[in-house]
Nucleic acid binder design. Sequence first.
DNA 1: CAAAATAGAC
Length: 638
Amino acid sequence: MSYCTLAVIGNFTYPSTSTSNPNPKVSISNSTQRRKEFVSLLKNCKDANQILPIHAKIIRTGHDQDPFILFELLRLSSTLSSVNYASTIFQLVHNPNVFLYTALMDGFVSAGSYSDGISLYFQMINRFIMPDKYVITSVLKACGSHFALREGKEVHCQASKLGLSSNRSITMKLMEFYGKCGEFDDARKVFDKMTERDVVASTIVINCFLDHGLVEQAIEVFDLVRVKDTVCWTAMIDGLVRNGEMNMALEMFREMQKENMRPNEVTIVCVLSACSQLGALELGRWVHSYIGKHHRIELNHFVGGALISMYSRCGDIDEAERIFAMMKERKVITYNLMISGLAMHGKSIQAIEIFRGMIKQGLLPTSFTFVAILNACSHGGLVNLGLEMFHSMSRDYGIPPQIEHYGCIVDLLGRVGHLKEAYNFIQNMEIAPDHVMLGSLLSACKIHGNFELGEQVARILMNHGVVDSGTYVLLANVYASSGKWKEAAQIRAKMKEGGIQKEPGCSSIEVNNEIHEFLLGDLRHPQKEKIYNKLEELNQVLKEAGHIPATDAVLHDIEDWEKEQALAIHSERLAICYGLISTKPCTTIRVVKNLRVCDDCHSMIKLIAKVTGRKIVVRDRKRFHHFENGNCSCGDYW
DNA sequence: CAAAATAGAC
């Protein structure tokens, strides 16, 4: 990217705010009156569909070059409609002033089209239009978000020449810009020059550190802030969540309570996100009741969506449905969240119903909506409906299928054992298959015992090049299941060769508001003796009940073949055993696992649910398993 | 009157 800049400030023209009448046919007083009317009409407009008629009227009455009207029109169309429309209007303006540039640039920035915003700024400079503090603030935001270091520095120079660099909002944006670009020394320089280093400036610094994964440095700055406000706390909590430090985020939230700082909607959304990633249902419920008790926290679509997501991902899908039913303001994302929640839990029919409701509301489904719906069909074994939906998305909604949608269909067909159809489907696709899709077919081959096709798919996969650790493990498992130990060993060797690390399996369970984490064969828990005794006891009971440990699953979680015999103690078993000894009888046990459950654990958990009379809910990487009375809601396919 | 936000795929 290259921008040509003329730095001769003297050549700049002052922005034209002239009220001169561009259209001689309209009298001045009449025109001023009309302008007022249009401006207030545009300011009060809340519906995107009204922009077009208003715009038409503006043109008809000859006000299409009026800078005041244009300013409002640009703002409105870039927030309500699309920045593309705003851009089209802008191109028809004969002499756009700095305000109009700012309006369009704000549109680009909020749409995430940062490079367009930056180009627009330099186009303005090249037309000798003098930048003001507003347009500089806006372009610095774009430069920061786009990591456009060179361009941002140039803007910094221009701001200095114009005597604007000490302006408060520009200083803030400069700091943010340097921080986002990782230029902490320069950010520091700006920070040091500031006479007033308040909580706002600190919040920016904290946020920049957290953008770069520098958690410790962020905490250091945070601790030095004397008077922290809600935004500052929230920025810290959110940053910890973004850096995967869920427990620290929740700890921070507890501390915030202790200091009597009130959370707002944003804080709640961040905390709920941490809960849902951890599977911390108890804490999530507490946050929910907190919202109920504190009426200054509104159940807007952000909070509602976060609650739906939290309850779905923590295993309480009924509560997620209740929230959804209660919400007054529902957007497409709200529907998407609800549909994928239901899909995760295998509640396909309900997911379809939500989808139909969405269409009835006049909302347009997105590409994501269809992934969620196809997932629901796949998890529920609704082959015909899934195929119908797949055709409908491009035919009725103009959404061309992407690789993910094709992949859903392969999964859908594979699940019910239509392996040949799935294979043919892949061969007839307009796009090349990827390893995820092939992996899903391979997994179907394994489950349905078609090792011939499985090997064929495996060979394609191996030639494919880019394969992730999960796929390697699956490949090795397929070979192992059909007794091809040599091939299985070769895959493992290849993994080692390529330096591909298997993600360690990890399961967690929430007991008394605390998250307990377990790794494979973990011995770190203070109650490890009791846990292992329980496991031993269960193994005995299950053996008597006729459970035979499957041998093909061991490759799932174990680094070395030798470790297998000694440590076939998958993390989910430990988490479940801990749940059994630390909760009252009949309480539902909820476990969250980072990988997918192996065959052996799956059949074992079914039996554990049966002999202990407990409901056991396991969230794995892909979906939920509700174990009850010897059965699982996934119908043994996952 | 500046600073913080939703989930995201086979």
